[in-house]
């Protein structure tokens, strides 16, 4: 399951197109471009089940884009995404997404409980209103992240860390098997960080898989089992103790591949009218 640099990957020739049906998320040959300018090149990844997985990489490496492309929130140039061997549309109920905190307007007139209850909408389906059962589930989820006392607060009156915990609770209430989290630890306080980590460990105990875009290299080793090192392409992926090495870090963060950048720019330009290539 482990991919260690180019040579090991090259040995997978021939089995590349097959998907592992046990893998909660397997990405094959995915390329994503904004305005024809590629931001992710040929991503190949099989996420192992029941592990805490983090995606690390420098700014602009395409970490958030990777999650969004998996969920069909941004269009792909090419690539095939499978969740337990099936397409996303048949597995939405088993996958929960925790977006970045900045992606919504926290002035919106809802309280913490309402937001968490949104996690039950998928199972409820069209038109059915939120009932006592859903509200109870939402309260329990808030309990798990330690916010039971704040459930009546309007969401702008929560601190940044509490807002992040509300988002986590919304995912918990879905009770999915796979969590895709976009920077859950970005600018949160220490107690929130601890609370989120605790919840993630509980999830691992229960056999769930968590894939998490992460920015803090200090905590990778102690908090995660598996790491994906990304910089426009997968530099390395595998168990933390094997893959999270100084050499791989250098290859991910150090020396940007200026040529790849230049080529991406050139591709983007070529597709804009009026520029001669």
């Amino acid at each position: 399951m482990t991919n260690q640099g180019p040579r090991a990957r090259a040995s997978r020739v021939g089995q590349g197109s097959e998907h592992d049906h046990r893998s909660p998320l397997s990405i094959h040959d995915m390329t994503v471009a904004y305005d024809r300018k590629p931001v992710l090149w040929d991503v190949d990844l099989d996420v192992p089940a029941g592990q805490l997985v983090c995606i690390v990489g420098p700014n602009g490496a395409g970490k958030s884009t990777l999650l969004k492309a998996c969920l069909d929130l941004v269009p792909k140039v090419s690539g095939d995404i499978r969740f337990w061997g099936k397409g996303i549309s048949r597995q939405r109920g088993k996958v929960a997404y925790v977006p970045q905190r900045e992606s919504v307007d926290w002035d919106f007139p809802v309280n913490a409980l309402d937001v968490v209850a949104m996690g039950t909408y998928g199972k409820l389906g069209w038109f059915k209103p939120v009932g006592t059962k859903q509200r109870k589930a939402a309260r329990e989820a808030l309990d798990r992240v330690g916010l039971q006392d704040l459930m009546d607060r309007q969401i702008s009156q929560l601190s940044g860390g509490q807002q992040q915990r509300v988002f986590l609770a919304r995912a918990l209430v879905q009770n999915p098997d796979l969590y895709l989290m976009d920077e859950p630890f970005a600018s949160v306080d220490a107690s929130t960080e601890q609370a989120i980590l605790d919840v993630m460990r509980q999830l691992r105990e229960a056999g769930r898989t968590v894939v998490c875009v992460h920015h803090d290299l200090q905590t990778v080793r102690e908090s995660f089992d598996w790491v994906v090192m990304l910089n426009m392409r997968v530099v390395a992926a595998g168990p933390v103790e094997e893959i999270f090495t100084i050499e791989n870090l250098k290859r991910t963060y150090g020396g940007r591949l200026t040529l790849l950048d230049q080529a991406a720019m050139a591709l983007g330009r070529a597709h804009q009218a009026g520029e001669r290539v």
Partner: peptide, 9 residues
């Protein structure tokens, strides 16, 4: 409230 989450669901 949250278009992206709605899309992911």
């Amino acid at each position: 409230f949250d278009e992206q989450y709605a899309g992911s669901q």
